[in-house]
Amino acid sequence: MIFLDGIPISKWGLQIQQEHDHPAVPELRRKAMIIPGMDGEWDFGSESGPKPFNFPLGFIEYDKNEKQRRINEFVAFLLDPYGRPREMKLSFDYEQDKYYRVKIANGFTPRRIHGFAFFDLPLIASKPRKNFMVPSDEIVMESDIPILSDLLWDTGFSDRKITSPQSFEIINNGTVVILFSFQMEGSGDNVSFSANGKTMTFKNFANKSLEITDNYVVKVNGISDLTISNGIFLELLPGTNQITVSGSNLNLTISESLTYQYV
């Protein structure tokens, strides 16, 4: 069973064939150069491309008017009010704690025979990584998270008070590198955060609220303002990461919000 925005496709009476494709690895873009006189090629590495999906779906309906109505309803779900493909969460019943962000990739044409309709649903995840179902600050003992989820509960800090330079650990439960996203309120001079060889610094500020997101955005009191920082964003490797905070006149309250990602 597949789910779109948490809704099982059976809501539209659709069923997926037991044999379907779920790519384990996204498309790979190899960067190589052939040099005359050299055997093989010069390998510059590879980059991940999008991850395509193609699901063979079908449903049973003998009334031709009702068959068209159900197709129309499903198509309307896939598109936004302007008729453009909209982003949805795609998840599977065999991995309920993770999801992809997908859009419909191409049009499709239902094949109609008496009592049945069949079509292949093409979806594309422009960002090919799987995301954990909730951000880290929502992972608490009362969370409705599948018991099979492989994660540590004590992942970092929340509402931590910082009044002097110090170091602490943050756990990235995913399998790929993610940005360190967090919220910071209060005051500080020459504030800096360091981790894994990178340092993010901030100008002096007083009684402000800062948000550093996982898509390279810095907000000051809710308004985007990258000028308050040096523009360097910290990366968290899979596993345990050490964060070092330095500065003077520190009176900060910090909370992290991480979206774990997986290959």
Score class of each variant (00 low, 15 high):
residue 44 F to G: 13
residue 151 L to N: 09
residue 39 D to C: 03
residue 63 D to K: 01
residue 92 F to D: 10
residue 42 W to Y: 02
residue 57 L to N: 05
residue 159 D to C: 01
residue 147 I to F: 08
residue 58 G to P: 04
residue 111 R to T: 05
residue 114 H to R: 09
residue 44 F to D: 13
residue 142 E to Y: 06
residue 70 R to D: 01
residue 128 P to W: 14
residue 57 L to M: 03
residue 53 F to A: 09
residue 90 L to E: 08
residue 101 R to I: 13
residue 55 F to R: 09
residue 82 Y to R: 09
residue 126 S to N: 15
residue 127 K to P: 00
residue 148 L to D: 15
residue 51 K to G: 00
residue 148 L to F: 13
residue 136 S to M: 09
residue 99 Y to E: 06
residue 60 I to L: 12
residue 135 P to H: 08
residue 75 V to R: 07
residue 150 D to R: 10
residue 91 S to W: 13
residue 57 L to W: 05
residue 143 S to F: 08
residue 88 M to A: 11
residue 148 L to R: 14
residue 151 L to C: 00
residue 154 D to H: 11
residue 91 S to E: 06
residue 129 R to K: 08
residue 90 L to N: 03
residue 52 P to M: 09
residue 74 F to Y: 14
residue 71 I to S: 02
residue 30 R to C: 03
residue 142 E to D: 10
residue 102 V to R: 00
residue 96 Q to C: 05
residue 105 A to G: 01
residue 139 I to T: 03
residue 74 F to H: 07
residue 115 G to M: 01
residue 55 F to K: 08
residue 80 D to N: 14
residue 139 I to D: 02
residue 157 F to T: 14
residue 47 E to S: 05
residue 96 Q to D: 11
residue 77 F to G: 06
residue 147 I to N: 10
residue 129 R to N: 09
residue 68 Q to P: 00
residue 137 D to M: 04
residue 86 R to Y: 05
residue 79 L to E: 14
residue 57 L to S: 07
residue 55 F to E: 11
residue 39 D to L: 01
residue 152 L to N: 15
residue 57 L to Q: 10
residue 46 S to A: 13
residue 158 S to M: 07
residue 54 N to F: 01
residue 74 F to M: 04
residue 70 R to N: 05
residue 150 D to S: 10
residue 127 K to A: 06
residue 30 R to K: 06
residue 114 H to I: 08
residue 160 R to M: 12
residue 140 V to K: 07
residue 95 E to W: 04
residue 109 T to Q: 13
residue 153 W to V: 12
residue 102 V to G: 08
residue 60 I to T: 11
residue 56 P to L: 11
residue 159 D to K: 10
residue 54 N to V: 04
residue 31 K to H: 05
residue 96 Q to K: 15
residue 67 K to I: 06
residue 48 S to P: 00
residue 74 F to K: 07
residue 129 R to Y: 14
residue 60 I to Y: 13
residue 150 D to A: 10
residue 34 I to D: 15
residue 65 N to T: 08
residue 61 E to N: 04
residue 66 E to Y: 04
residue 59 F to Y: 03
residue 58 G to W: 14
